[in-house]
Write a protein that binds this DNA or RNA. Structure first.
Length: 313
DNA sequence: TATGCGTGGGG
DNA sequence: TCCCCAAGCAT
């Protein structure tokens, strides 16, 4: 109570946070990124907006190492949305390979078609137009606007949410996703200049992916350590441990998800419609198999061109 | 807002 | 071996 004086710069932990402090976060991240960014193919300067969009969709829930070869094949085969839109959607599913969540391939094809219909074949640079495209949500739309068009938008994925919660919020982990608050908290960290802000967004993502990781953060190798609120809180003894965020168990073995994957793999591996018997062979439980097949047909990932025969659309 | 949706690599 | 994931989206 008596220590209210704002006069003397005492020792002890620095004051909470100041706009200047937040600006430092972006500066440090940008500087680090310039020297440490991974050399990923979709980051090359000549990558088109279409290439950026494809990479973002593929990277939704799929690791970089598995995306890279498939992205290269896709862009070589379908260098523009028009090239993909001219194909049957089943070709997108086939070329998706085993990246997982094949509905993304279907949506990417639908996206290519929509871009042809609405935007004369060019990926739009307007955020709302991007958000309206199939398979493009809050994250992907801003990622494309920032990385392909150098616009100033908060690009918030799970890694950025965690990094911002820690470095700016002083918390061990991000809470449940609350889009509006997440966007605001991240936006507050962005430099004013759009192109620099875009680099800062890439830098935040990269740091979240390779330094400020969930379980075992590598603070000693993180360029933000000196200004990280979470780090400061821990040094002051008022920290929470890296308490692992609680994911849902969601076992995979034996789930409909696995059965769908097995059934779709059969169709993906052949050019001609397969008889029901070929599907029966990959999963014993007929009830679950039928349910999975019905859901694949319902999703449009499979079609039934003739009674009892199934194929990619 | 909670849930369903694939897959293969690493601890 | 088994568990935990890894740059979300749509409903």
């Amino acid at each position: 109570m008596s220590r209210r004086s704002a006069a003397v710069p005492t020792d002890g932990p620095p004051p909470p946070r100041q706009p200047d402090h937040r600006a430092r976060l972006a500066d440090l991240a940008v500087d680090w990124y310039a020297r440490n960014a991974r050399d990923l193919p979709w980051r090359k300067p000549d990558t088109t907006a279409w290439g950026v969009l494809v990479s973002e969709v593929m990277l939704q829930q799929t690791p970089v190492a598995r995306v890279t070869p498939v992205w290269l094949e896709w862009l070589a085969r379908w260098p523009t949305p028009a090239h993909l839109a001219a194909e049957a959607s089943g070709e997108a599913i086939r070329a998706w390979g085993r990246l997982g969540y094949p509905r993304r391939a279907l949506r990417l094809h639908a996206c290519a078609v929509a871009v042809g219909e609405r935007h004369d074949g060019e990926i739009p640079d307007d955020l709302d137009a991007l958000l309206a495209l199939p398979g493009v949500g809050a994250y992907t739309a801003r990622a494309v606007a920032a990385f392909a068009f150098r616009q100033r938008h908060p690009v918030v994925d799970t890694n950025v949410r965690r990094l911002v919660a820690r470095a700016a919020g002083g918390l061990a982990d991000a809470g449940p996703a609350t889009t509006a608050a997440d966007l605001a908290a991240t936006e507050a960290l962005l430099p004013a200049d759009p192109a620099t802000a875009a680099v800062a967004s890439a830098a935040f993502m990269e740091l979240g992916a390779v330094r400020c990781v969930a379980r075992t953060p590598l603070c000693e190798q993180c360029p933000l350590t000196a200004v990280c609120a979470w780090r400061r809180a821990r040094d002051a003894g008022v920290a929470a441990p890296p308490g692992g965020p609680s994911r849902k168990p969601q076992r995979y073995a034996g789930t409909d998800r696995q059965v769908r994957g097995l059934l779709l793999a059969v169709a993906r591996g052949t050019e001609v419609p397969v008889p029901r018997a070929a599907l029966d062979a990959v999963w014993a439980d007929g009830v679950q198999r039928d349910r999975a097949l019905a859901s694949l047909l319902d999703d449009g990932l499979l079609v039934e061109p003739a009674e009892g025969f199934y194929a990619l659309p």
